[in-house]
């Protein structure tokens, strides 16, 4: 144990850490717990029930929103991941002095306030006369998902021996053969992790979607926001809990894939 380095030797640190965790997770735990509340009133517990889950699955508007969310997330994930993979390989190959600038620009959308991106995208769509609908939502999601997909792929590539790529060329592989036979399989776990992160980001996005979605392109987060304006019902809790579970599952898979070391494929 490296006791000297540990923050825990500061008096009260463990208490503060515990409080911070409670602060982070108490609302989520409460939300999930209340989704099983039998009562019509969100905040008064009367007994255990799964009736709100049944109600969610019986709600046609809600199911349409869920369908929109899944369509958007799927298409945006595929497009963003493909773009991020191409960007990773392109940036790695360049010797340009602007390489750092390009990498920074790729990551910048993560730091720009979401509302700025939202307004900017809305203005762009209006300016070029693009109709607001599912297509505009998909395009917008593709854009903001690229950096989420980019970083896991890049860190995977950074863990690979650059000589592997050179070896493929040296052994007569064309650019396409090299991509299909060497780069794609070796980057695979990183690409999958990036895709899952992009999927989650798309699934949970509210602000940008709210700005660029037209009527009929309502996604789940936008739908939930609409429900809450009428009043918080346990149905919202149940729906949120389902979204939460989906996200945790997807992030868990991404995490496990990201932990696989780059060049050790024992067995198989």
């Amino acid at each position: 144990m490296m006791r000297d380095q540990s923050l825990l030797r500061i008096p009260g640190a463990s208490v503060i850490a515990a409080l911070a965790l409670v602060f982070l997770y108490l609302p989520i735990v409460t939300l999930v717990a209340l989704s099983f509340n039998a009562s019509d009133l969100t905040t008064i517990w009367t007994g255990f029930s799964v009736r709100w889950y049944a109600a969610v699955l019986d709600n046609g508007d809600m199911l349409r929103a869920a369908k929109n969310s899944l369509i958007t997330a799927s298409i945006a994930t595929v497009l963003a991941t493909a773009a991020a993979t191409a960007a990773t390989l392109g940036v790695a190959r360049t010797r340009s002095a602007y390489r750092g600038v390009v990498e920074g620009l790729l990551g910048l959308p993560l730091l720009v306030p979401e509302i700025v991106t939202a307004v900017a995208l809305l203005l762009l769509f209006v300016l070029v006369g693009a109709p607001l609908g599912l297509l505009s939502v998909i395009l917008a999601h593709t854009v903001f998902c690229i950096p989420f997909a980019y970083y896991p792929i890049r860190s995977r590539l950074a863990g690979l021996d650059p000589a592997l790529i050179e070896a493929a060329s040296d052994l007569y592989a064309s650019a396409w053969q090299r991509f299909l036979r060497i780069e794609l399989p070796l980057l695979g776990p990183g690409i999958l992790a990036g895709a899952l992160l992009a999927f989650i980001s798309s699934l949970g996005d509210f602000v940008i979607t709210y700005f660029v979605a037209g009527p009929g392109a309502t996604t789940l987060p936008v739908y939930i926001f609409g429900m809450i304006r009428i009043g918080v019902t346990p149905e919202v809790n149940a729906l949120s809990a389902i979204l939460l579970l989906t996200s945790i599952a997807v992030i868990g898979v991404a995490f496990l894939l990201g932990r696989r070391p780059a060049s050790q494929h024992k067995g198989g």
């Binding site: 021996d161 000589a163 592997l164 050179e166 070896a167 493929a168 040296d170 052994l171 060497i182 399989p185 070796l186 780059a262 060049s263 050790q264 494929h265």
Partner: peptide
């Protein structure tokens, strides 16, 4: 028409 033996060997791990 040349081939290289790399210092790290660069064998394809997959």
């Amino acid at each position: 028409p040349v081939n290289t033996v790399f210092q790290s060997y660069a064998l394809f791990p997959h």
